[in-house]
C-alpha cells in the first residue's frame, strides 16, 4: 500500500501548492492522477517518491510510516520506488552514456557486478541497441532517452512506480511503447503505479482507475471517501 494522508506540501510554507490531499494506491494497482498543469500534482508525485518533504501529512509505504525524505530516507525505502519524469533531457546526467545511466542505481547501491547483465536485460525489450547504449543523452532522441530513463527506474526492481507526465513530450507510438513496457514490468512483478498526467484518454486507457485532482482537493472533509469511488475504468 502506498498511502498519502492529508499531505500539504509546496515550496513556500505560506502558499503550499498541495493542500490536505489523500490518496491510496493498492499493491499492484495502477492509479492515474489527472489534473491541469500547475495544479500541484507533480509535487504530490515527488512527495510520494520520497523526493520532497511535505509540510504536513503522512506517507505510509507498505505499512511503514515514512519519517525522512531524500537522503534522510533509508536507502531501501528510496529504491523501492522507481521514478520517471516528464523531460528525459533534464532527468539524465548529460555526461553519462546511456548504459551508465541505466547502471547508475546498481552502482550507487554497491551492485556493480550485476550492472552489465542487468543493463542488457533491461535495454533489449525497450529497443535500446548496444549502439544506442554507447551514446550520450545529446546524441539520442527524446523518445530513446525516455526509454533509458524508464530502464534506469526499473533497474533496482522497485515495488512502486511513480510516473510524472512521462509521455507529455512524446509521440503516439513512443507513448504506447513506453506504456507497454511499464505494464509488462508490472504484470511480471506486481508493482503498483501512480501515473500523473493531464491526458484523460491516455490515463483512462492505461490505469485501473483514475482520480481527478479536483476530487482530491474539494474541501468537504471527505476527500478520502471521494477517492475510493473508482473514477472510471478502462475497457480493457
Amino acid at each position: 500500500m502506498l498511502e498519502l494522508h492529508a499531505i500539504t506540501a509546496g515550496y513556500d510554507r505560506r502558499a503550499p501548492v498541495v493542500r490536505e490531499v489523500s490518496l491510496t494506491v493498492e499493491p499492484g494497482e495502477a492509479v492515474g492522477l489527472l489534473g491541469p498543469s500547475g495544479c500541484g500534482k507533480s509535487t504530490l508525485a515527488r512527495v510520494a517518491a520520497l523526493l520532497h518533504r511535505p509540510d504536513s501529512g503522512t506517507l505510509v509505504l507498505d505499512g511503514e510510516p515514512v519519517r525522512g525524505w531524500r537522503h534522510q530516507a533509508p536507502r531501501a525505502l528510496r529504491t523501492a520506488i522507481g521514478v520517471v519524469f516528464q523531460q528525459p533531457r533534464l532527468s539524465s546526467d548529460p555526461r553519462l552514456r546511456l548504459a551508465d545511466l541505466i547502471a547508475e542505481p546498481l552502482r550507487a547501491t554497491g551492485r556493480r557486478e550485476e550492472a552489465a547483465g542487468r543493463v542488457a536485460e533491461l535495454a533489449a525489450p525497450l529497443g535500446l541497441t548496444p549502439d544506442l547504449l554507447r551514446r550520450r543523452p545529446h546524441e539520442v532522441s527524446d523518445g530513446q532517452l525516455q526509454r533509458a530513463c524508464l530502464a534506469r527506474a526499473l533497474a533496482l526492481r522497485p515495488r512502486w512506480l511513480i510516473c510524472d507526465e512521462v509521455t507529455a513530450m512524446l509521440d503516439a507510438s513512443t507513448t504506447a511503447a513506453l506504456v507497454e513496457a511499464i505494464e509488462h514490468y508490472r504484470s511480471t512483478t506486481g508493482a503498483g503505479l501512480l501515473a500523473v498526467g493531464h491526458d484523460h484518454t491516455l490515463l483512462r486507457r492505461w490505469c485501473d482507475r483514475t482520480v481527478h485532482w479536483d476530487a482530491l482537493t474539494s474541501s468537504d472533509g471527505h476527500t478520502t471517501a471521494a477517492l475510493d469511488v473508482p473514477a472510471s475504468r478502462s475497457a480493457r
Partner: peptide
C-alpha cells in the same frame, strides 16, 4: 497507420522498433 493505431483512443499498440 501505425501512428494512428498507437493512439490511446484507438488500439494503443506501438509500432515495433525505433526510427
Amino acid at each position: 497507420r501505425g501512428l494512428l493505431r498507437a493512439l490511446p483512443e484507438r488500439e494503443f499498440t506501438p509500432i515495433p522498433g525505433m526510427p
